[in-house]
Design a protein around this nucleic acid. Sequence first.
DNA 1: TTGAAAGCGCTACCAG
DNA 2: CTGGTAGCGCTTTCAA
Lengths: 346, 346
Amino acid sequence: MKDIAKDLGVSVITVSKVLRNHPDVGDETRNRVLARVKELNYQLNLAARSLVTGRSYLVGLVVPDLLHPFFAEIAKALSEVLRKSGYYLIVTSSDEDPELEEQEINQLLARRLDTLIIASCRTTVDLFFRIQNQKIPYVLIDRWLPGLSSNFVGVDDEAVGVLATRHLIDIGCKRIAHIRGPETSPAIGRLQGYKRALLESGMKIVNDYIIAEPKGDVESKQRGAEAMSRLLALKARPDGVFCFNDPLAMAAINYATKEGLRIPADIAVVGCGNLHYDDSLRVGLSSIDQHSRQIGEEAARITLSILNSKVPPAPESIVLQPELIVRESSQRRPAMNARSRRRGPR
Amino acid sequence: MKDIAKDLGVSVITVSKVLRNHPDVGDETRNRVLARVKELNYQLNLAARSLVTGRSYLVGLVVPDLLHPFFAEIAKALSEVLRKSGYYLIVTSSDEDPELEEQEINQLLARRLDTLIIASCRTTVDLFFRIQNQKIPYVLIDRWLPGLSSNFVGVDDEAVGVLATRHLIDIGCKRIAHIRGPETSPAIGRLQGYKRALLESGMKIVNDYIIAEPKGDVESKQRGAEAMSRLLALKARPDGVFCFNDPLAMAAINYATKEGLRIPADIAVVGCGNLHYDDSLRVGLSSIDQHSRQIGEEAARITLSILNSKVPPAPESIVLQPELIVRESSQRRPAMNARSRRRGPR
DNA sequence: TTGAAAGCGCTACCAG
DNA sequence: CTGGTAGCGCTTTCAA
């Protein structure tokens, strides 16, 4: 930049202004500068600019697992919207590990990103108070923490649980199990909804029917199978299962099928996430749509509104309503005499 | 940092040294500094450090589609390995659009990233020469460009094509089609392999059996269906299809099934990618494994080796050998009399 | 073991 | 419309 200025006999400031499309510069000068920039193949150093403006035009995204289509879709939507305003995404994965998440977030804080967008696997709020101290705005997605007033975008998880469970009740299931997720708000909310739907229909909550899956978003394949095997071992085998998410549901169905059970005749299954391959599965998977794309878009919108306003706006909370998508895995069950045709398990 | 120095009556330099674990500092001083850092909840500004060291500890990743599990898996592996050495990933998606990709890369260049890792959808090398001029090292993944000598990590795409096609021949297919991908090296290589395998078995190459899919990695669902519908409309309907990737194959199978055809009895299908849900599909999908995780890991390794060596090392090219995974969609076809049971298409 | 001077590349502010 | 002065927060080099 200094070189360009020297070459052209103008000041560095003028060059800088041209590069920022600042109006205070003559057309002739502007063109001369632009020409030289092309000639030299000059590249602005945005890092230096950040240092003085205090804006990095970088947004951090922390998710538990990039491979999970739910988060991948959010990342994609986020990236698309932010890019249009010149913001870029630096993405890290916490692997569903609170310690790792803290390290990652510290790194991102040190880099002075403009905003953080976090699907947190933490169960305490201390880290977030630290973020607030640094005056870096953040948006929670998918998961929130009690006692923390912050921006949030996600789905109404209790409604997810109610929707799925009530649907299983509606199609005639009598013993409904739940394979739950990790100890964060979505799993807690969905469990809550599951229980509420049961109680509202006068059904009892059976603890054996609630399978805890500490790390539902990672290695779902194995854990879905394990969970299903525990359910099948019960004397009063469930006839319906609501799974925390679709990968879990898919694994559970695979296991049950391998054991000779028919879905949905013997066990109906509902997942959550409505992933793009749900309708291509061996048994089309009924699921609850969480509007993942919309979550990304809304989070981006909030981010931009924070970044564009001089005074930090009041925390915004966007709670989307989930939607039930019925497929084969929870088709209204056949009449009872269908049971006679059932091959026994094992 | 200045504050800390003032508070403690030491110099800024000393504080800086402590923060970098520089040995030249007394234990007592070090501890005093560290204590004050904790007290003030001080956060180092890495952006400022970058400006003077010329290292951002940031690696750029450009992929056509983050939602595609193939790229998501690469991103994940990359991120995991790089993180251990303190590098972070800034991820952008080109949406399979060469223009957009150029814009994105320009942005990343301006940010002075340490390395770029690119799955390029470009067909010309000019942009890459520009990157080389900027002296920013880069690693191509999945796709390479003719006439460009650079670091590369990917699979042997011709071998992919040969493996898939030869397998279809082996199970008895006589009219083998190929739904190809976009005009980049993987699609070109796989097509090449497809042709070679046919010729080597004394079969003819029928142009109608080769369906061009300009943007195979995006919206595969619709395009897979379209491609299959074109194949089914042919008078001599193919009895085997090798698809550029798994999403395409899945969509193609769904369409064919909906039209009343049986997979693999009427048409056998092989995809590529070996995605995690392949074995849960309505028809278990035979596929070619590309070792996506390994691609990410190798790319990370090359990146680190470049970053750790004073002189830029010679370009490295890692070409992994693909692996055939046989599932239901290409099970050895039943005897010919099975045809009598076939429901007609449409 | 400690620190002073110098500067990374850019932009804000205000004067001409 | 143009440009000087100052400084963003940190590190490097070298002298004390």
